[in-house]
């Protein structure tokens, strides 16, 4: 919030045209045209700037920098997890035994919303776990986990989820904790 001279407040305005979204929209534009000529890229930049001006969005500036090697580790771990979990879920579907489930609460260490969103996205893309509820105030994810016959299995899943968070934190180094939502 920004305060005017007469004491009233108004919301802070941010720049509508952000370089990252312009780049992304231009990439999508040239993919759609299936061409990378100067005309396509130039018109893409124009259209992207226009879209940013007409539909302004708040900026995302939640992480300081991306480290390439841990990012590769994160992506590789995600692929391995997806293949393994897909085979597991297929086995659960095809066997005769009835299935038991669990709802597990995972308290994330980091207090940044960006990490919460990223970890929730990764965990729900891996078959076998669905984010049922995410509580922003305490940074807790509640996940429904398929095929947990006993409590030990649930604990193991919790450890795996926290390991995913560690890999995510290694790949995207968070800025500071001063923007933390833990007290909000």
């Amino acid at each position: 919030m920004r305060t005017r001279r007469d004491g009233t407040t108004r919301p802070t305005r941010h720049r509508a045209v952000q370089p990252l979204s312009v780049v992304w929209l231009t990439v999508v534009w040239s993919i759609l045209w299936r061409d990378l000529s100067l005309l396509v890229v130039g018109s893409g930049v124009l259209v992207a700037v226009g879209v940013c001006l007409v539909f302004p969005l708040p900026p995302i500036a939640l992480f300081a920098r991306v480290r390439p090697w841990p990012l590769a580790v994160l992506a590789g771990g995600f692929l391995v997890d997806v293949v393994r979990a897909s085979l597991q879920v297929s086995a659960v579907v095809l066997r005769r035994r009835p299935v038991r489930n669990a709802v597990v609460a995972v308290d994330l260490e980091s207090s940044s919303d960006f990490v919460l969103t990223g970890v929730a996205t990764i965990l729900s893309l891996v078959p076998g776990s669905v984010v049922v509820e995410a509580r922003r105030s305490t940074h807790t994810l509640y996940l429904h986990v398929l095929d947990t016959p006993d409590r030990a299995r649930a604990e193991r899943f919790r450890a795996e989820a926290l390991a995913v968070e560690q890999r995510f934190l290694a790949a995207f180094v968070p800025r500071d904790d001063h923007h933390s939502g833990r007290t909000a």
């Binding site: 897909s86 879920v89 729900s124 893309l125 891996v126 078959p127 076998g128 669905v130």
Partner: peptide, 14 residues
């Protein structure tokens, strides 16, 4: 329903 959703994630990703 929630068990079915686990199965539903599979064709959408892999």
């Amino acid at each position: 329903l929630l068990s079915r959703m686990h199965a539903a994630t599979k064709p959408q990703v892999i």
